[in-house]
Amino acid sequence: MIIHHPLLGPRDSAEFTYLGDANLIDRPDWQDKKAADKFYEYQYLRNNPAGEHQELWYHEAGDRSWLVVTRNTVTHEITKVELARDVARARGRSK
């Protein structure tokens, strides 16, 4: 698979390591009353769809950036690649 890195252009997926579902960006608030349940769901449960999937890839053998890749799990076709930083900020994260 070729991942079109937003800064570096087309890169072989072998340069990356894979973390998983991009929902891992949305870490729950540890002060929430239901924090234990929310962290359980955050850490262990997955949607695991057959089809379009947003996921985190880390450019370990490159610029060490985290990317959010939108990829089809049935065809392996990649339709969108964003910097995870931008996605997190768009979801309201400050850092």
């Binding site: 998983g20 997955r46 695991n48």
Partner: peptide, 18 residues
Amino acid sequence: GNSGKVMSMAGMRLPIES
């Protein structure tokens, strides 16, 4: 292999990735 897909029809999320 397809557990995530099939169990989602029962509204379940699993501690599983395919």
